[in-house]
Amino acid sequence: MSYSPAATDNSVPILKVRELKVHFPVKRGLIFQRTVGVVKAVDGVDIEIKHGETLGLVGESGSGKTTLGRAVLRLNDTSGGSISYSGQDVLALRGGEMRRLRKNIGMVFQDPYGSLNPRMTVGNIVAEPMLVHKIFDNKLAIRNRVMELFDTVGLNRSMASRYPHEFSGGQRQRVGIARALASGPNILICDEPVSALDVSIQAQIISLFDRLKLEQQLTYLFIAHDLSVVRHVSDVVAVMYLGKIVEQGNADDIYRSPQHPYTQALLSAVPIPDPAVERKRSRTVLKGDIPSPLNPPSGCVFSPRCPIAEDRCFVEAPMSRTLSDGRRAACHKV
């Protein structure tokens, strides 16, 4: 299976992001503020997801992965580029149209504590999207649907009238997933959905995502920093670093033979839970810190930490190129 963003086979991308830019002005001053700089959180990103596919978006803190996910739902203002959902120009949508888009794209957040209203029962939390999107015209139908959703995500129906604080982290994340599913979306954007959970609970939630994908033909934009989790869930992987995608393509290809030096270093930094494997692995440990997005390096953003950088990498930013196996990488030396 090869991956090509330009492919025009039968599976048309359901979500297409082109040259997307999200820049945040940095302001100083008490009342009369002036802009002193700009953080290019997302800086010219292309991704596309086909129906039923999972795109794993990985990167370290400050890479812009969360901002990209939020921009798709217009939770951030964008500074350039385009987003299209099923052929619709997302950035041109207004009011009611925008609400309809959000009915079709659900979101699951990282923090299962902060993302649920503590003063609502979990039943009402899951019912709310159905009221907002006027999916049913009577309360009984909503109630029944909430119960179905509880079954789907593995929550006990009798818990519907309890409050979020009565639940564990894993259960709260199930509530968050039920809420995201309530409006009947095609796409789920999951932003670090399991990183706040314990290992044994994490596996339960990942398995739930696996099952939902099969049962409901969901498409996922799965944002995470844990490369092992992303390996498990993704068909396609995009690796972000300081606002840019440095490599993207078929997940198997990327995990088997990463081409970009950052992807290589990132994968080799992740320990594999098997001492026999670990002892035999050769690793590249990156030097230095992730630069501040306020003051990114010139040339290739990865150049100061890159083990194979040469002179031109510090001057000239590499363009993203399509390689022979269909993946894309942005590196002069690939």
């Binding site: 564990s168 894993g170 259960q171 314990d198 290992v199 044994s200 609970i201 994490q202 596996a203 339960q204 990942i206 398995s207 696996d210 490369l227 092992s228 989790v229 390996r231 498990h232 068909d235 997940a251 198997d252 995990y255 994968l267 992740v270 594999i272 839970p273 098997d274 494997v277």
Partner: peptide
């Protein structure tokens, strides 16, 4: 055993199912 089976591995083949430990801590 449950923990080891729960963790997704970087070097696993795609589609290898996880076997989570049921229940809560």
């Amino acid at each position: 055993v449950g923990l080891l089976r729960s963790v997704p591995r970087l070097d696993s083949e795609k589609g290898t199912p996880l076997s989570p430990i049921g229940g809560e801590i």
